[in-house]
Structures are given as structure tokens and as C-alpha cells.
Amino acid sequence: NKFNKELQWATWEILNLPNLNEEQVKAFIDSLRDDPSQSANLLAEAKKLNDAQA
């Protein structure tokens, strides 16, 4: 389904953001699992944090 694909994509993207530490990655992945419908928003937040920590 749509959420499953978005969840998989967001998870992959977050795992590959180079500037997030392990705790941050875990927190984003946990949030994705808690509410897959928020995957686009969570991915945007993760990318923003990744850029800020570059």
C-alpha cells in the first residue's frame, strides 16, 4: 500500500543521511514506525536536521 512504500522510502533515506548521529536516526525511525502516515513530514524534518548539522 501507499503508506508502506512511503515508509520504506523514508526509512532508507533517513538511514542514508550522513550528518545524523545514531540516536537521531533511531528517533526518526521509531517515529516512522509509530505513525507511518507522517513519513513525508518526518523525512523533511530529518533532512532539515541533516543540513543544519552539515
Rank of each mutant, 00 (worst) to 15 (best):
D34R: 14
E6N: 05
L20H: 00
R33F: 15
K5M: 03
R33K: 13
A27W: 15
K48D: 06
K5W: 06
E6V: 07
S39A: 09
S37P: 04
W9H: 13
W9Y: 11
D30T: 15
W12A: 05
K26L: 10
E23P: 07
A27S: 13
F3I: 15
S37G: 07
L17D: 00
N21S: 04
K2M: 13
A27F: 14
Q24G: 00
K47N: 07
K5T: 10
D35R: 09
A40K: 12
Q24V: 03
L20E: 00
N21D: 07
W9E: 09
D30W: 14
E13M: 15
P36K: 02
L17P: 00
I29E: 02
K47Q: 06
F28P: 00
D35M: 08
R33S: 11
A52M: 12
N21A: 11
K5V: 06
E23Y: 12
Q24I: 03
L43W: 05
Q53W: 07
E13K: 14
T11E: 03
S39G: 05
S39N: 07
E22L: 11
F28Y: 06
A54H: 08
L15Q: 13
N16Y: 04
A40D: 05
E45K: 14
P18S: 09
Q53E: 05
L7W: 08
L20Q: 00
E23S: 12
R33N: 15
Q53M: 13
I29R: 03
K26H: 10
T11G: 02
K5L: 03
A46R: 00
E22V: 12
K5H: 06
E45Q: 13
L32H: 01
K48R: 13
I14P: 01
K47E: 03
I14W: 01
W9V: 07
N4Y: 11
N4L: 11
L43R: 05
F28W: 03
D34A: 14
D34S: 13
E6F: 15
N41P: 06
E6S: 04
K2T: 11
P18G: 07
N4T: 06
A52R: 12
Q38P: 01
K47A: 04
K2N: 15
S39E: 03
A52H: 10
Q24L: 03
Q8I: 09
L32E: 00
T11Y: 06
K26W: 13
E45A: 14
K47Y: 15
L49M: 08
D30V: 14
S37I: 05
L15A: 06
L49R: 05
W12T: 05
D34Y: 13
A52Y: 12
P18M: 13
N19R: 04
K2F: 10
W9K: 07
S31Y: 09
F28V: 02
K47L: 09
L15T: 08
E22Q: 11
L15K: 11
T11S: 05
E23R: 11
A54L: 09
I29W: 03
K5D: 15
N1I: 04
A52G: 07
F3V: 15
K48S: 10
A46T: 01
W9N: 05
D34K: 15
L32Y: 02
N19V: 02
P18W: 08
N50R: 01
L49Q: 06
N41K: 13
E6Y: 14
E23W: 14
S31N: 10
Q24K: 02
L20V: 02
A52V: 10
E45H: 12
K2P: 14
S31D: 08
R33M: 14
L43V: 15
A40M: 14
S31L: 12
K48N: 07
N16L: 05
W12V: 03
Q38V: 05
T11V: 07
D51E: 12
